[in-house]
Design a protein around this nucleic acid. Structure first.
Lengths: 195, 195
DNA sequence: AGAGTATCTGAACGCGCGTTCAGTTCAATC
DNA sequence: GATTGAACTGAACGCGCGTTCAGATACTCT
């Protein structure tokens, strides 16, 4: 159990997760050693095992907490009624959430193949739940005649891929503000599924 | 220099590249050892160094030849005149080309961070050239009034991200044929940039 | 048959990996 | 001031890594 006021350095747990997230995102899970992470935290490698079961468990926890947070944040969002409003809310939410967590997003998309089978299945299930959110919006909109989407599942994949791609080029110092980026993507998504 | 009819097993070079491509795509560059690749080829690890300078050079060559082929294939394609036809040609070409080479695509998008700086710059330049192809199509179409695209550069990023995403879900045994997948994406791209 | 050469083996190199653990440090508690 | 126990160190464990290279092998060419 962690103490409330530590002896040596305290708050090592959160710093461990932050350091691992940054390093995994930058260099990849397989290319980052426990010693490298420990150095970032300012500790010897062995000390990390007071906070994690092993390296694989560290990766899994980073990915799981990211997806848990993603789903929780979406569910906490106040919803409108129509499919069009829901799609706009989803688009803006997705762009904003992903721009706020570039490292976590990168890891969640790139390190799937480094998960052990059981962990992989758990993460895939969470991701699938999120994809289903958009899929349901598109299906409902198509049923109402608001959208022209023949295949809501694959359309959802296409839209999510497009939106997630924002993390590959957006920079805070760049020409576009976050609001402008949201508008840009919403304009493309809206037209792409329009009747 | 490779011989035209070998002594021990011959054609080791191409088999090496094929094995490395499959393994890198499945497990990641950093997670695949030279000994693992050698075992796949049916040879000891040392023998691989008759064909490559080192592991990094192998990765670089895989990525470079993929992007060279991509650009060459696009340039070899017969072109129509208008922006709309060009966009349709690009969309269908991109989907088809990427579905034909899932492993190479995966590597080219995921292993960028494992490239040494000089190699990274070379690969990025090729990727940038390809993005510019679409960017120019969108800009021309916007100038002609055929498209409504305020920012052709970022719209190009968004479209390419959407199209490349096809490799994450398409399976040959799946419900949709390649032609149907092309149609699905073309329908979304066409509407997304339409005036 | 003999020379030449492309190919590959098998062993070795130094190194860093993930993980474990006995022992040390030190704030909090009694 | 003695005891507790979480946090951490530092060394060690076996192992696999990328790469090198002397020597063996098996083919082509003269």
């Amino acid at each position: 159990m962690a103490r409330t006021s530590g002896s040596h350095s305290e708050i090592t747990g959160p710093r461990l997760r932050a350091a691992a997230q940054a390093l995994f995102a930058r260099h990849g899970y397989a290319a980052v050693s426990m010693r490298r992470i420990a150095a970032e935290v300012g500790v010897q490698a062995g000390a990390l095992y007071n906070y994690i079961p092993d390296k694989q468990g560290l990766l899994f926890e980073l990915m799981k907490s990211h997806l848990d947070e993603l789903l929780a944040a979406w569910e906490a969002l106040p919803k409108g009624t129509g499919a069009r409003d829901a799609l706009e809310a989803f688009t803006r939410f997705h762009v904003r959430f992903h721009l706020d967590r570039p490292d976590a997003v990168f890891i969640a998309y790139m390190e799937l193949r480094n998960l052990e089978p059981a962990n992989f299945r758990a993460i895939e299930a969470l991701r699938r739940r999120y994809e289903t959110v958009l899929e349901d919006i598109l299906r409902q909109g198509a049923a109402e005649g608001a959208f022209d989407v023949a295949d809501s599942k694959h359309a959802a994949f296409a839209v999510i891929a497009m939106l997630t791609g924002v993390t590959t080029w957006y920079r805070d110092e760049g020409r576009l503000s976050r609001a402008e980026v949201e508008d840009l993507y919403w304009s493309m998504v809206r037209k792409a599924v329009s009747a």
